[in-house]
Design a protein around this nucleic acid. Structure first.
Lengths: 196, 196
DNA sequence: GACTTATATCTAATGTCATTAGATATGTAT
DNA sequence: ATACATATCTAATGACATTAGATATAAGTC
């Protein structure tokens, strides 16, 4: 019997997340690969993590937390439409710089309390900005869905080599951000006009 | 030795596509499942199709062709901004009604001539509409990327149970379409103003 | 009609990944 | 020192993909 290494659940998730960060390729993060990197047998992982499903859930949690941190930082010291642009930009940057981590963060929450809380933390800064700007909650939801859809799709198209035309993808991103920000700006202007 | 069934490549792809249409689940479309439905051994499939990769490429082609047909139909008998809305709506409807087929159509073209041609066919109607409206080609590309990203993301979020808030996803889709159409409309109005 | 040829299908074997069951050794607490 | 919890192991199974090589069937040729 091999020596007991005293690996913890955190170690397992750390290792899995390392693999994901290094390769930005979900396919690489298998139970087998994680075990190999830890120097133990695959089967031993099941003592720490609830199989592939459980591992992916842990990775989703970490990705969401990492993203939430970025977005909160991006919301510091800015206000109004600049704040919207800043948080939006941070979200795009994260999705393009860490495509696999961003993809992992898109995890069906169902009724999982921890996932739901992590999603809450991600949504918090933008929601606060828009809510304080007096924008209607259902409109916020529609706009959030537009934004998340767009970033999600753009990131995946970008990573999969789907944007092949000889037109700068950076310019496309700027174009997209401008469209999304303009849509919010209209609503801000309108509410300012109403209040004045 | 079993009787020769005379299965053709088209039969194999038909069967695979049937599986995809029925389940709208890519995971289900395996070499094994396709062979089982055809009543032959998995290995026999390799005489018709170049493995899983080849099968997915064929499915991507069919999905693209099916989508192209829908978009061309949607562009018949409409003009200007109405045409934009009609084609856009058709694209959304296809993505939401056949999520797995739409996802399969998002296939890295690389230098594959058939895939590139199929993508061309999909892009043709909207590109024609926008080009005839005098919109700049690079702007068309940016806008197309915005649209494709958004639909791609919305479709996948929708299918994966990511849109959980008690707000109508149908309304969100309408909201999103309005934003996308408005962005084009601005440009149409501008060019009309210039020409007048 | 017999012979050749092409090929659709088969059997056999290998490899990867995930997972469950049950054994064993190590660290910790009593 | 003994007992217990558990981290790790070996063994076994199952799904899927893939390659190599054998065989029978259909089609073409003389």
């Amino acid at each position: 019997m091999a020596a007991r290494l005293g690996i913890s659940k955190a170690d397992v998730v750390d290792t899995a997340y390392e693999l994901l960060e290094e390769t930005q390729n979900v396919q690489v993060v298998t139970m087998t690969a994680v075990a190999a990197r830890l120097g133990i047998r695959v089967q031993s992982l099941y003592a720490h993590v609830d199989g592939t499903q459980g591992l992916q859930r842990e990775i989703a949690l970490r990705s969401l937390q990492k993203l939430a941190q970025r977005l909160n930082q991006a919301a510091i010291g800015v206000a109004g439409i600049d704040a919207v642009r800043s948080v939006l930009k941070a979200q795009f940057d994260f999705a393009l710089e860490h495509p696999a981590e961003f993809a992992a963060s898109i995890y069906p929450p169902g009724t999982d309390p921890q996932i739901l809380e992590a999603i809450q933390d991600v949504s918090y800064p933008m929601h606060t900005i828009l809510h304080n700007a007096g924008i209607d909650d259902s409109v916020i939801t529609h706009w959030n869905r537009l934004v998340l859809s767009t970033i999600c799709g753009f990131s995946s198209l970008h990573q999969n080599g789907q944007l092949t035309l000889p037109v700068s993808t950076k310019d496309s991103m700027d174009y997209i951000i401008k469209v999304l920000v303009s849509d919010v700006e209209e609503k801000l202007v309108t509410s300012e006009m109403i209040s004045s």
